[in-house]
Each structure stands twice: as structure tokens, then as C-alpha cells.
């Protein structure tokens, strides 16, 4: 545990020195404010571009509620372009150290492979979640300002569930990092697997119970305040994360 926190600190300091915290936060802030702005001002935006022939916006359509806009922000922005950029930001976390020899050098110290893997997992998850959380709360305040009140505690609970999904995504990248040498291929494999799980999770809710993306179904229920909240959706992602971590430990092939 002690070594994990020491290596985790290194991971966070590297993110500060590489200004990763800044650019990733700016990126998620930009993504976060895009959706409420589009939802609120679509008609104005279209008009300002001279109008597009054939496009009609129903003047009687009800204005979306704040939680619906927030859901669109996460499912439409954060889980698509956001997820791809996020994975690109950490796809080299282990491969780069492996190729430069830093990883080998760390393993000559009294550090176990599980401690090393855990520091990478929690370090990159923490960096990702800090950036996502800042972007999310800016998006939340924007949405509330434009579309009306929504309880911040409920939004926070939603974010907690979403963070479990991000932890799964980081753990997948960690697993692929121990199997593949090229950062690019690690990124592509992680993106593809995450998208497959996201699409499979939309097929039906029973299947979602067995998928890591099922936690997003739970997050959605919490955000939309529906009555079918099922915390069993938490089990699958935790199992998948453990499989990824122990798989990475087996594949890292280190004394």
C-alpha cells in the first residue's frame, strides 16, 4: 500500500509536469458546455449560419429537462469523443516506461508488479476523474442555469457510477499494455473493446448485468430518477476490473 501511494504520487506529478491536468480539463470543460449550448440555442445557431434548407425545428417541442441534457452530455459527448481522447491520453502509461527501460529499473527496487500496476491504474483513473469531474460540474452549472434546477447530490451519485466505468476503461488499457508493445495499438484495442461493451450494453438490461458498461445503466437511472434503480449493475464492472488487474499481473511476467 505504501509503495502504491509513492508511485501514485509520481504519476500525478508527471501529469502536472506534462500539463495533462490542464489540457484534459479544458477538453472536458469544452465538451461539457457544448451539449447544453446546442440544446438551448440550436435554432439560433442554425439561423446564424444562414439557416439550412429542409431543417425544421418543432416550435412546440418541450424544452428538455436539466437531467436529460446532462445525460446527453455524457452519452453523446463524454462517452464518444471524450472517451477516445481520454484513452489516447493514457494509452502509453506502461508501454512507454517498458520501452524506455524505466519499468525494468523500477522492478529492481522492492516494488511488486501488483503495486506497480495498481499505481498506474489508480493514478490514471484519478487524473482522468479530476479532469472529468471539473468538466462535469462546469457542465452541470451551465445546464442548471439554462434548463432549471437539478439536485447536485444526485448528479454527484451519477458521477460516482460513471467513475467506475472509467476505472474499468483504465484497467483495460493496463491489461493491453502488458500484452502489446505499441502505444497506438493499446489505444485502438482499448477504444474498440470499450465501444463494443457500450453497444452491447444497449441491447437489453439483463445482458447489461453481465457487462462492465452495465454501471452506466445504473448511472442513467440515478440521473433520470427512475424507479428501477438496480445496484447489482455494480458487480460486473468490479469483477471485470479485478480480472484485468490480475490478468495484467500475470502477463507482466515479473519476479
Amino acid at each position: 500500500m505504501r509503495n502504491i501511494s509513492i508511485l501514485l504520487k509520481v504519476e500525478l506529478l508527471e501529469a502536472v509536469r506534462n500539463i495533462k491536468f490542464i489540457w484534459l480539463t479544458l477538453f472536458f470543460t469544452l465538451l461539457g458546455v457544448t451539449q447544453p449550448l446546442i440544446d438551448k440555442y440550436m435554432e439560433v445557431i442554425i439561423k446564424s449560419f444562414g439557416g439550412v434548407e429542409g431543417i425544421m425545428i418543432d416550435p412546440n417541442a418541450p424544452e428538455p429537462q436539466a437531467n436529460e441534457v446532462l445525460l446527453a452530455t455524457f452519452s453523446g459527448q463524454f462517452n464518444q469523443i471524450g472517451l477516445i481522447v481520454l484513452i489516447i491520453s493514457f494509452m502509453g502509461m506502461i508501454a512507454n516506461e517498458k520501452n524506455s527501460g524505466v519499468q525494468g529499473f523500477i522492478f529492481t527496487r522492492p516494488v511488486s508488479s501488483l503495486e506497480y500496476i495498481s499505481s498506474k491504474l489508480f493514478g490514471n483513473w484519478l487524473i482522468s476523474m479530476v479532469c472529468i469531474a471539473i468538466g462535469s460540474f462546469i457542465s452541470y452549472f451551465y445546464t442548471v442555469y439554462l434548463f432549471g434546477y437539478y439536485p447536485i447530490v444526485d448528479f454527484f451519485l451519477f458521477l460516482v457510477c460513471y467513475s467506475v466505468w472509467i476505472l474499468f476503461v483504465v484497467s483495460t488499457a493496463v491489461l493491453f499494455s502488458t500484452l502489446i508493445k505499441s502505444s497506438m495499438f493499446i489505444g485502438v484495442a482499448t477504444i474498440l473493446l470499450s465501444i463494443i461493451f457500450l453497444l452491447a450494453g444497449n441491447i437489453n438490461s439483463t445482458l447489461s448485468l453481465f457487462l462492465p458498461s452495465g454501471v452506466l445503466t445504473l448511472a442513467e437511472s440515478l440521473l433520470l430518477q427512475t424507479h428501477d434503480i438496480n445496484f447489482l449493475f455494480m458487480i460486473a464492472p468490479i469483477v471485470y476490473i479485478l480480472i484485468n488487474v490480475y490478468g495484467a499481473k500475470a502477463f507482466i511476467n515479473q519476479v
Partner: peptide
């Protein structure tokens, strides 16, 4: 090691 691999930053 023969080639020291360190954290450059």
C-alpha cells in the same frame, strides 16, 4: 544498469 533509465521530468 548499463543504460540508466530515469524519469526525465
Amino acid at each position: 544498469p548499463d543504460t540508466p533509465a530515469l524519469y526525465p521530468n
